[in-house]
């Protein structure tokens, strides 16, 4: 049986410099543009591959997802509900995946992602920083259509700070 993983990734650091840009269209700042490709490489080097990428439609999330897509040779699927998505939205996205997909990645925002980190871990997690990656394994035999949070086991949290 093939091991399944789920990656939940917060967008990299975004820019606040242009007051006329809407929140949805805010781009990554220099640090974000530096961190995102490095984190995509880190995940690949650690031995994880992504075979499906779903991103919030917000510019900062889809730009971050683009770097991971490039490293993994994937396309980015945009999903508006992940913009300010809560854990329920991510679970719904997961349940819609085809069973031929084994390692999907979802790109979104806080506070939703920190909330998910607290659901899948047994510890209190104060904050998932920008470009932080939650790596969860999926219990054997669970179909995406039946998935619940209890089927996910948090394996790693990677952050740009650890990757310096």
């Amino acid at each position: 049986m093939v091991d399944k993983h789920v990656f939940i990734i917060r967008h990299a650091k975004s820019s606040w410099s242009d007051p006329l840009t809407t929140d949805h269209d805010r781009p990554l700042d220099d640090r974000g543009l530096h961190d995102a490709p490095k984190m995509a490489d880190l995940l690949k080097r650690t031995g994880y591959t992504i075979d499906k990428i779903v991103s919030s439609s917000a510019n900062r999330a889809r730009t971050t997802a683009g770097f991971f897509a490039e490293v993994n040779g994937q396309e980015v699927t945009l999903e508006r509900s992940l913009y300010h998505g809560d854990p329920e939205d991510y679970l719904e996205m997961l349940s819609l995946q085809d069973d031929s997909i084994h390692n999907p990645a979802f790109f979104g925002h806080n506070p939703g992602i920190t909330h998910i980190a607290n659901i899948v871990s047994n510890d209190f997690i104060d904050n998932i920083p920008t470009c932080g990656i939650l790596v969860c394994s999926v219990k054997d035999g669970v179909k995406w259509s039946d998935i619940q949070w209890g089927d996910l086991i948090l394996k790693h949290i990677f952050t740009p700070k650890q990757n310096k």
Binding site: P19, D23, H84
Partner: peptide, 9 residues
């Protein structure tokens, strides 16, 4: 403005 965008979303 970002908060209002968020609320709208």
């Amino acid at each position: 403005s970002a908060a209002l965008d968020t609320l709208r979303a």
